[in-house]
Design a binder for these strands. Structure first.
Length: 420
RNA sequence: CGGGGCAUAGUGCAACGGUAGCACGAGUGCUUUGGGAGCACUUAGUCCCAGUUCGAAUCUGGGUGCCCCGACCA
């Protein structure tokens, strides 16, 4: 990707109306654009990050047997009347269609996926299974806030699982937990993200959230110092001891909710009459679970956790591109070398942002730090004098030289993880 | 939804009720090139609607938008 062709530009100054680090940095670096409070566009670099995150999630969902689908955003009122949430879910965007017909913009999809499942589930032989989608959700939040952390339109991965009984749901629930940990690890949030007992479980005592430690978060959690399970403050008073190990040694932290899993039980299968025949011919309601992650919120959380005073520091797997190649100066041989290297890297399968702009070295350095691509490669007169390139990790201070003809070493460097 | 703050050029800031200015950006030309270069010229603005006033960016009323605190948060 040629930086000179990017239609977005970086801003020298942080936007004055954004306080949160994720909104400020992502806006400055040209990853996102705010259309209105809690409503954002994703620009080329931002969209690449979001796609990386979505693909990580998609891969992990596929591993636990999730079948990807896409359900409508526009829902008829009737489905929401069926569960009563037309009246009780106050963040619903409601709208009128032709002939005054009422519609809902999807805030979540139990009202769609449950009747969908009913069309294909008849027997215990049809269970279990799980479907998921990654799609825009709409919630009329009373207050959008903190950049990507709380928006009114947001991308959500929602997985729904369908089971013959509680035991089967419980087993799958544990698998989903593991998949979620894997996702947050791959997104660079390992060690900062805690499984957290929370309220809202309709079928079991708790639901579970995945909470990433950050001052920017709106939740307060208590982390058990014995077993690492956390408890959301919303249930702390009724859960003084750790539900995992009974310890009462907690550490209090502010955190961002990056994921949430629920055992729905028969809450939705009953109103939609989603039943099946068991082996003895009896009719039983299907037992359900649902599992959500907001990829865009996750992107915001990553920036909150991983940045410095100069800009973003993308973890390797979610970085918009893997290497940022800077050509310094107007020297023709520098340009020629950089151009050749760019092509060679692309051929080798590397994802490279090539700063081929006619800009000063200082500006290129500043932008590289701001954009936060994990590996920086510099070609300049200075490096060419030594038949070398300079390489550096965004997260590290020290630079090192790699010989021009040592392409293998260069690939190794940009493939290696940062040492934090 | 309660409370607070803010709204001036693309961005960030100034301007006592009296000629809207600065820096960056953008454009042209020349010079420059390892941490946001220099000179010259150019470009571009008072959120909206009323009111007060000889005169409003500035005062008053209303509206709209954004941010923050709280409430809310399948």
């Amino acid at each position: 990707m040629l930086q000179s062709k990017l239609f977005t530009k970086t801003l020298r100054e942080p936007p004055k109306d954004e306080v949160s680090a994720n909104a400020s940095l992502l806006d400055r670096a040209g990853f996102i654009d705010k259309l209105a409070a809690g409503i954002y566009s994703f620009l080329p670099l931002g969209w690449r990050v979001l796609n990386k995150i979505q693909n990580i999630i998609r891969e992990e969902m596929n591993i636990i047997g999730g079948q990807e689908i896409l359900m409508p955003v526009l829902h008829p009122k009737e489905n929401w009347m069926r569960t009563g949430r037309w009246k009780t879910l106050d963040v619903l965007f409601k709208m009128k269609g032709a002939e005054d017909k009422d519609f809902v913009l999807g805030a979540t999809h139990e009202e769609v996926v449950t009747p969908l499942a009913k069309k294909f589930v008849f027997s215990y032989k049809d269970l279990p299974f799980a479907v998921f989608q990654i799609q825009d959700k709409f919630r009329n939040e009373p207050r959008a806030k903190s950049g990507l952390l709380r928006t009114r339109e947001f991308l959500m991965k929602d997985l729904y699982s369908f089971h013959p009984d509680e035991k089967d749901l419980d087993d799958y629930y544990e698998k989903a937990k593991d998949a979620y940990f894997k996702i947050f690890e791959r997104c660079g949030l390992k060690g900062k993200t805690y499984l957290t007992a929370a309220s809202g479980g309709t079928f079991s005592k708790y639901s579970h959230e995945f909470q990433t430690i950050s001052e920017a978060g709106e939740d307060k959690i208590f982390i058990c110092q014995n077993c690492d399970l956390a408890v959301n403050s919303e249930i702390k008073s009724e859960t003084p001891a750790c539900p995992g190990c009974d310890s009462s040694d907690f550490k209090e932290e502010q955190a961002i909710e990056v994921g949430n899993i629920f055992k729905l039980g028969t809450k939705f299968s009953v109103p939609f009459e989603l039943n099946y025949r068991d082996a003895s011919g009896g009719e039983k309601p299907v037992v359900m679970g649902c599992y959500g992650i907001g990829p865009a919120r996750l992107m915001g959380a990553i920036v909150e956790v991983s940045h410095d005073d100069k800009g973003i520091i993308w973890p390797q797997e979610v970085a918009p591109l893997n290497a940022h190649l800077l050509a310094l100066g107007e020297n023709e041989s520098v340009k020629k070398e950089a151009e050749a290297l760019y092509k060679k890297l692309i051929e080798a399968g590397a994802e490279v942002l090539y700063d081929d702009r006619d800009a000063s070295p200082g500006e290129k350095f500043a932008d590289a730090d701001l954009v936060g691509i994990p590996n920086r490669i510099i070609v300049s007169e200075k490096t060419l004098e030594k038949d070398s390139l300079e390489v550096k990790k965004r997260s590290e201070k020290q630079v090192q030289l790699v010989k021009l003809n040592d392409f293998k070493n260069l690939i190794e460097f940009i493939s290696s993880p940062a040492s934090d």
